[in-house]
Each structure stands twice: as C-alpha cells, then as structure tokens.
Write a protein that binds this DNA or RNA. Structure first.
Length: 608
RNA sequence: GCCGAUGUAGCUCAAUUGGCAGAGCAAUGCUCUUGUAAAGCAUAGGUUAUGGGUUCAAAUCCCAUCAUCGGCUCCA
C-alpha cells in the first residue's frame, strides 16, 4: 500500500477511523440524546468514543448494553450510507463555549485549549488558542482538529464494526468520572475488515491461557489465589530450560548465584525506600511478636545485604549476584491476566555492584547479554526504550544529580553499544532510569521484557562501600537487570509467540513414540530408553488408541516429533519420523535420528 | 480498585416463558491389533462457583462473596 511510509495521522485509514468515531457519536446521540461527549480519537486498528450517559434512578451510571451496541452499529451504517459532507470550520473560544454549553467535557477541552494547557488529546500545547476547530456532518457538530474524509460515504459501511464497550476514566484519571467507551474498527473495505477480524480470531486461538490449559503448562486455582499460577510439570520443564540456559550464560559471564528468602523485615524495605512506593501494591505485612515481615516485592535489598555481609575491595568488583527470585505484589484484581500479569512472579534478577570506572563496560555487557538471550529465543523484532523520570512527578527518589548521572551513563553505554532507543518520560524505576527492551511478537503486539537499570540511590541508602586503590572508602554503583523480566510473563509471551509449538530445545515433550499395535510396545519403550539416554524428553503412547488417534493427539499437543514404530521398524532398528509440521520423513536408523535431534537441541535451533 | 459481562461433568457447550440437569470429547472397562490428524460397544462422572433470599417449585428471579473475561487505571 502507498500509505506505508507516511505517519498514521496522515493516512486515509486515520481519516476513515476518525470519521467513523464522529458518525458513531452521531448514532449514539440519536439513541441517547442526553449523552455527553468526551473524546473520540482514532487508535491503532480502529477508534473509540467516550460518552457520559448520566445516572439512572438508583444513581448508577447508565451503560451501553450489547443490544445498544448492535442498534448503534446499525444506525451508524445507515448514517454512513446516507451521504453527508464533513464540513470544517472554526469558532471563537466564546462562540464555542456557548455552542457547547451543555457539553461539560467539551467545555473543559475548550478551556484547556484557550489557556494553552492541553490539546484535545491531553498533550501539552505551547500557545493559547484564540479559536477552535470544529467539524460538522448533518446536525452533528464536534470540537475536533480533524482531519476527516470528505463525505460519510467514504467510510464503507461494510468495513466498519463496533467491537466492545467498557468503562474509561475521563482523561485516564481514576479520580475523575468514569465514562462509557465504545471501541470500533474501520478499514478501507470489507476484505480488510474481515482480515482484521481473522487476526483477532488468530490471537484468541493462541491465547496463552487457552494453550496453557490445553498443553498442560500451568493452572491457576482460586483456592490458591488469583494471580498465583501453579506450574504443571510440562510448564516447569519449559521454564527450567529457560532458566538453565540463562544460568549458563550468566556463569560464563562471571555472575555468582545466590538464594534469598521470600520474606524480609519491613525495616529492610523502609531502608531501601521500596515500602512507600510499593505500599499500595503490597501484601500486608505479617506481624509476629514485635516484628513485621513483608513478602518481598523486590530482590534488591536482599542482594544488597549479601554485598554488605563482608567488606569489599575494588579488586572484588564488579560483583554480579544473580538469582531467580520470586517476588509478590498485590496487583489490582482487574489487572490479573494469565501468566502475563500475576501477583507472585519470578524475576531473573541480578544486581551488579560496580565502580564508576566499570559502569559503562558492565552496562554494555548487560545489554549484550540481553540481546544474546533475545536472539537465542528467536526474538529478532525488538526495540529499546530509555525510561527517565518525569520532571514534575514526586514518585521518584534521589537527587537530580543522581538522575542526570544515571541517564548520562545509560546514554553513553547505549550509544557505544550502537543501540537505538527512544527516550520516554515517566517510565523510570523510582530509584533510577532504566533501559527496557520491548519485543514485538509475531502478531505485532509489543511486550516489555528485559530491563537494565542504573542505580546510585540504593548504594547511598544502604551506605554501601568498597575500598579503592587510594585506600579510601568509595560508593559503588548498582546495576539492576533482568533479561526475561519475569519468568511468568516471559513464558506467557513465549507460548503466544510460538503458538505453543516450541522450538525443540524448549518443548516439554520432544518426542512421542507411537507403536502401531500392542506387539510393538516393547520396541517403542526400547526406542524411548535410547532417546532418554541421549537426553531427550520422550513419551510412549501405549494407549489402546488407533495409530491415527495417537498421531492426532501428539499433533494437538504440538509435540515436535512422532516416531511411528511397527513391524518394519522393530525388525530393522529404525523409526518412521513424522514432524508436527505434518512432514513424513520415512524410516531412518534410530541412531541417525538421535544424532540429528540432539544437534538441534544443542544449537537451540528453531528448525525441526 | 472502578464499569460491564459471565460462571452447568476434567474440556467445549445444551436445558421453551421458573417445572425430573443433557450431549460430544476426555476418563474407566471390554472387543478390535491397527502404517501417518478421531475404531466400536458399555460404564462412571453434577449440592448447576460459594453463601443467603423469593417461590408449591430455582441452573433459571433477587442480594452478597469469590473467580474469570472485556475495558479503564497501574505494571515485570
């Protein structure tokens, strides 16, 4: 398409979606004449519009029902076909305030525009506006910067669909009124719409919650607790492959393993400064006698205490302490989601204690490790984001100097490593700036995974020191880092990315041996034993099912290899190799298969 | 946490307006001994998420709680 290289805001699709939002609002007003309009922008793949429908007799907010949505969609399609031009004009602030007098949200937007505070998207503006831009189709007039299509008919009625409703806070602030949002999608034509809907179906089919159940990877029991996943044997095998891989990579890079308990005294987190920041998302402290203990929300304080357990010379540094450390955060109930958003999760955590001279090299080495990990996973589409503090936010600790120093260190190291990154305000940790690695999966969805943070604050808080060449005590700097981020989220993403068909080295079961009839079971077990001796994870399907059924079951479990064995194979010492890609490779000597498979495992190949 | 929807067998779903809770798959048993994506027959499986309430009668209506899903806010 010709639109690929121009900004989204300038594309036809953007206009189509923006115009769809207006026509949808027009349709809503026909059904709900009292609705107050908030904002209705185009978004990725579609658009939304927020409405305030007022309260019912019981003072409960009026919401859209599913039937409402259908009616609105039908009405909207009618309005699209009943052609009308989008007319652009402007009004003075005073005119606009009068015109939108019964639209409080529009008034707020107009006032912000007039004062030069915020534009209609909530972004800061530089200059106060004298007049505002408006768009009109038929009797529907909206405060809007545009652009729009010229006529409503340019939005094809069969290329638009309303998807869902939901609550949304005015201006994204949970202390402000909650509005009713309708999401819709709009495309150039019907075919594109259908393709998009298919994409949604595809995403649903690879949902890790669905696959996690079907493939027996994890389970979440309400009795254990929401957001506290139980790892089933197959999920555990998968996770352990990841952990072993990283552990090995870390050992090769001079990391030292440590293990720390799941709780710690409240005082520890008060010293670290975590407590005030995590108070709201924290399991309440456990009180015993005169002490209070917290389920740890972070591993750093424990690792710091390990550092402090003995005096350090500059010769000991950098000290790289690594642990798969499980932390607990009491996330809001509405936030929980399978493995990707949980209340107890394991961070592939490490804390590096370094001298100022070592900071840059160590940071680069960490970035290098993260990239190595991603590449090994077959994650090639990722970007980096430098999260810095928000100048006017009070949620960050430390001095401006510390922040400047940290940001500078990250920038220098990232530049030296040749890494492209974008800077985003308000994306820092409370104790320092961080570099996040954001991965785009096969469905083009973005996930924040690995993270590296430079920290001058905690060494200060805990009064960390080492003896330098000059014989004086100096303050080390800490680097916090986690390539996977959290094992739970990472595995969740991995499941969706691979659609449950993991590369051989990660597959919980790598091979299923399929005996054709009972009399082949003995040979099947013999084959399985040899595979196990070669380090393969293998199952024998000795059930009374037909061979076809056994193959089907293995296919559904996305097991990489099915080895069919019958009279021929038993006589020749061979196996008939079939892959989950429906590929029949015919008979081959077992030794040849083992040779091939183990090589693929060793090289962590994506191929079968 | 907020707004909305949902919760029936291990899984996927049925059950007219309130009137005896059912099917497919999975499980178990038996028969068949099978050559690359579902053999046949039989058996078992449920306090309809939990706790209250309305009713002669509740899976169905009402209330509360828990959980899940879709959004918002927040985040690894």
């Amino acid at each position: 398409m010709s639109e690929q290289n121009i900004p989204y805001e300038e594309t036809d699709l953007y206009r189509i979606r923006h115009s769809s939002a207006h026509v949808m609002a027009e349709a809503v007003l026909e059904q709900f004449p009292e609705a107050k309009l908030a904002i209705g922008p185009p978004i990725e793949d579609g658009f939304y519009y927020d409405f305030d429908l007022g309260k019912d007799d019981n003072d409960k907010p009026i919401t859209f029902s599913e039937e409402d949505l259908e009616k609105i969609e039908a009405k909207m399609k009618q309005l699209l076909k009943k052609n009308a031009p989008f007319e652009h004009s402007s009004m003075s602030i005073a005119e606009a305030e009068q015109f939108f007098a019964d639209q409080p949200y529009k008034i707020e937007l107009i006032e912000d525009l007039a004062a030069g505070r915020l534009d209609e998207n909530g972004n800061p503006t530089t200059e106060p506006a004298n007049e505002v831009s408006i768009y009109k189709q038929r009797d529907f007039v909206d405060l809007c910067r545009g652009p729009h299509v010229k006529f409503t008919k340019q939005v094809k009625a069969n290329a638009v669909k309303l998807l869902r409703t939901g609550g949304a806070y005015w201006r994204g602030d949970e202390h402000k009124p909650q509005l009713q949002r309708i999401y819709g999608t709009a495309w150039h034509n019907r075919v594109e719409l259908e393709q998009y809907l298919e994409r949604l179906e595809e995403a649903k089919a690879r949902d890790h919650r669905r696959l996690g159940k079907d493939l027996g990877l994890f389970h979440i029991s309400p009795l254990v607790g929401a957001g506290l996943p139980l790892w089933l044997p197959k999920g555990t095998v998968l996770r352990m492959q990841l952990e072993d891989f990283l552990r090995q990579a870390q050992t090769a890079r001079g990391y030292l393993p440590v293990i720390t308990p799941h709780i710690g005294k409240l005082d520890l987190y008060i010293t670290s400064g975590h407590y005030p920041y995590y108070k709201d998302s924290q399991y309440t402290p456990i009180e015993l006698d005169d002490d209070k203990f917290l389920l740890k929300p972070m591993n750093c304080p424990h690792h710091i205490e390990i550092y402090k357990s003995q005096p350090h010379s500059y010769r000991d540094l950098p000290l790289r302490l690594a642990e798969f450390g499980t932390v607990y955060r009491y996330e809001q109930s509405g936030e929980l989601n399978g493995l990707t958003r949980v209340r107890g999760f394991t961070v592939d955590d490490s804390h590096l204690f370094v001298t100022p001279e070592q900071l840059e090299d160590e940071f680069i080495a960490v970035v290098d490790l993260i990239q190595y990990v991603f590449e090994t996973m077959g994650f090639h589409d990722f970007r980096a984001r430098l999260g810095v503090n928000d100048s006017d936010s009070d949620k960050y600790a430390g001095t401006p100097e510390m922040w400047a120093q940290g940001i500078k260190a990250i920038k220098q190291a990232a530049d030296k490593a040749g890494l492209n990154y974008v800077v985003e305000e308000g994306e820092a940790a409370f104790y320092g700036p961080k570099l996040d690695f954001i991965f785009r999966d096969v469905l083009k969805r973005e996930w924040q995974l690995g993270t590296v943070q430079v920290d001058f604050l905690l060494p200060e808080r805990f009064d960390l020191e080492y003896t330098a060449v000059d014989g004086q005590k100096h303050r080390p700097i800490m680097i916090h880092r986690a390539p996977f981020g959290s094992m739970e989220r990472f595995v969740g993403i991995l499941i969706e990315h691979f659609n449950g068909a993991f590369p051989l080295w990660l597959a919980p079961v790598q091979v299923t041996v399929v005996p054709i009839a009972d009399r082949h079971n003995a040979y099947a077990y013999e084959v399985a034993d040899k595979l196990k001796q070669a380090g393969m994870r293998v199952e024998v399907d000795a059930s009374s099912d037909r061979m076809n059924k056994k193959i089907r079951n293995a296919q559904l479990q996305k097991i990489p290899y099915m080895l069919v064995v019958g009279d021929r194979e038993a006589a020749d010492g061979t196996v008939a190799v079939r892959t989950r890609a429906n590929e029949d490779r015919g008979d081959m000597a077992l030794s040849v298969f083992i040779e091939q498979a183990t090589t693929l495992v060793e090289t962590k190949s994506m191929d079968l």
